[in-house]
Write a protein that binds this DNA or RNA. Structure first.
Lengths: 199, 199
DNA sequence: GATCTTTATGTAAATCCTGACATATGGTAC
DNA sequence: GTACCATATGTCAGGATTTACATAAAGATC
């Protein structure tokens, strides 16, 4: 079973969805840390069905094409539950932008500083979007957010990760731009950068 | 030209290396945010040479097999310089562990809490390793670290990113474990989590 | 003498993923 | 009526990446 398979099962464990619906979800929600195009999703659904992890029914629609609505099976839910608590297989992080930083010494300083300012802004925008979602979730799901066995908690958890990721990235971009421009790096939460775990 | 090609050029812009040397470097240094196996590196070197971005000479060795030492060309350096200041093509982040969090509500709480504690420890260990490197760099490269046109600065920059990434990840894992165990989340730098950019 | 490790360079099969191609329904805009 | 858009489901070619296969020199260990 592939990671994409589990990503799909993760969505189907919450609601019944068509391949088209799944394609939409894979560009949002889960999609913050996993994504796939429909060209990958449809074949994967066929494989999942072959393996008995999902089933589908055809739903006829007026005013739009018929669709196949997929449902997770008991077997699929078992597989998902098992996968969730397996320690991750170590996979390398791939980040082309950070890789570029490794060769930034070759670049024109003005152009480089601008590049990091712009990338920083992109991460700040993403962060702002996540923060809005967080505010909405805290309003709408107040009770559920503290119970770790609710899907709402799980959704909130991945969002938390997204927020931390984007904030850290934006901060680093600011530090890069400031350093390249030979300014005192801004923000100066540099205390937490000194010494392992702040010690 | 592929990202791997630029990763290799980034290393060759600093020193002449064999395919074997590059394989080692791709598991460290740059490798924190990009990596490749030798089976990918050797064919890529051939492609880079075909494109005139690198050249090689055969160095005969006693006591070990001969090797091909690669050198970046002016053309290769130009290509690298151009790539470095190009805004990144948006690529999705893939993180299987965070994806698991999306389905954590299905898991046994004790098992889940332990999973996040352990993963947190792994990131803390990586962080400690990075902090050691940082301390060493600050001692050995004191002068160079402030000049953005030195390779030392660029190395330090990617390390900074690694430190921020691991610290944030470790913190999130702690928060996850605490939340699953229904404790008051530890660390409580939660102030910075409230409101966009702390506002 | 056999096996293991490090250095050193390659190839091949399989999988993962993207981007393009392909088709069909029905509504809206021009 | 023509073009475009959202819905809906698929296939296919190619590139990126991993795992395994393959070879070879020389030293260390048993």
């Amino acid at each position: 079973m592939t990671t994409l398979g589990y990503a799909i099962l993760g969505l189907l464990s919450r609601e019944e969805l068509s391949g088209y619906d799944l394609t939409g979800r894979m560009a949002g929600r889960v999609g913050y840390f996993w994504s796939a195009r429909h060209s990958q999703i449809y074949p994967e659904l066929a494989r999942l069905e072959e393996g008995g992890h999902v089933t589908h029914i055809v739903v006829e629609q007026t005013e739009r094409p018929d669709k196949k609505v997929y449902k997770i099976t008991a077997r699929g839910l078992d597989a998902l539950r098992e996968w969730v608590i397996q320690p991750p297989v170590p996979r390398p992080i791939r980040d082309e932008f950070t890789l570029k930083a490794y060769s930034v010494w070759l670049a024109d300083k003005e152009e480089a500083a601008q590049l990091y300012r712009e990338e920083g802004h992109r991460h700040e925008e993403q962060l702002a979007h996540y923060e809005e979602l967080r505010a909405w979730m805290q309003g709408a799901w107040r009770e559920n957010l503290t119970s770790a066995d609710s899907p709402e908690f799980a959704t909130y958890a991945t969002l938390r990760r997204g927020i931390g990721y984007e904030r850290e990235y934006a901060e680093w971009c600011r530090w890069m731009a400031d350093s390249i421009e030979r300014r005192e790096p801004s923000g100066e939460r540099e205390k937490s950068q000194s010494g392992k775990n702040g010690g």
